Simulated scan of single mutants.
Amino acid sequence: MTIIGVAGGTGSGKTTVVKKIVESLPPHFVSVVPLDSYYNDESQATPEERKSINVDHPDAFDWKLLIEHVQALRAGRPIEMPVYSYSEFSRLPQTEHVEPRPVVIVEGIMVLLNKKLRDMMDLKIFVDTDSDERFIRNLQRDVIERGRTVEMVIDRYLRMKKPMHEQFIEPTKKYADLIIPQGGENNIGIRILRKYIEGIAVNE
């Protein structure tokens, strides 16, 4: 099994990179484990208490469960991955069944922060995107997909997302084997990544 970590700031384009990896491999060859699914279970908290949680701080995540699940997949065992609702700011009762496959992608803003998780990765990627571009993507996503107002998004960005990025996310770039700057199809990082992926498929 090959475990790939894909990190980067919120709105950096991590999902696009993961999509390119999935598209480059044979069908049913890869499982994706998003860090966003592993926010702590705050279902016992009031709605107001949930909204006040800093979801961009490392303490917001259930690292123990995530590490256990990645270890289980590496050992060939399926997992029941949590499902998180951004509208409810809470983990939902249902889970998502994830099978172990030749490639497992662990994707999220801080997946390179935790050393125990990082040490399980065969390839560590950091998607590096301009902060203005990331803010615009966050604004569009949170307003359109998550039902938040422009004022709410700006407030959270200035109070939480920006300082947390500078303190916790940006420094993890030093752990990356491959830094992919913004640039799309012609990006040299994407081309190198595809070569790596082609090697995985051939070896399998």
Rank of each mutant, 00 (worst) to 15 (best):
G76S: 11
R77I: 01
R77G: 00
P78C: 02
I79E: 00
I79L: 04
E80V: 01
E80A: 11
E80D: 14
M81W: 00
M81G: 01
P82Q: 07
P82V: 09
P82D: 08
S85D: 14
Y86Q: 11
Y86E: 05
S87A: 15
S87Y: 12
S87R: 15
E88S: 14
E88M: 14
E88W: 10
E88P: 08
S90Q: 15
S90L: 10
R91M: 06
R91D: 13
R91N: 14
R91I: 09
L92F: 10
L92G: 13
P93C: 12
P93T: 09
P93S: 12
P93H: 12
Q94Y: 11
Q94H: 15
T95N: 11
T95R: 10
E96L: 12
E96A: 14
E96F: 06
H97E: 02
H97M: 04
V98S: 01
V98T: 02
V98M: 02
V98K: 03
E99P: 02
E99H: 05
E99L: 13
E99W: 07
R101Y: 09
R101G: 03
V103T: 12
V103P: 09
V104T: 15
V104C: 12
V104H: 11
V104L: 03
V106Q: 05
V106A: 05
E107H: 09
G108F: 09
I109A: 02
M110K: 14
M110T: 06
M110F: 11
V111Q: 10
V111R: 08
V111F: 09
L112M: 09
L112R: 11
L113C: 04
L113V: 03
N114T: 12
K115Y: 06
K115E: 14
K115M: 01
K115Q: 14
K116Y: 05
L117M: 04
L117R: 12
R118Q: 07
R118Y: 07
R118W: 08
R118P: 04
D119T: 05
M120K: 13
M120V: 08
M120F: 01
M121T: 13
M121P: 10
M121K: 11
M121L: 12
D122K: 11
D122V: 08
L123Y: 11
L123F: 14
K124A: 01
K124C: 00
F126I: 05
F126A: 06
F126V: 06
V127D: 04
V127S: 05
V127T: 08
D128Y: 04
D128P: 08
D130I: 01
D130F: 00
S131P: 10
S131H: 07
S131E: 15
E133C: 04
R134F: 01
F135W: 09
I136N: 13
I136S: 09
I136L: 10
N138Y: 05
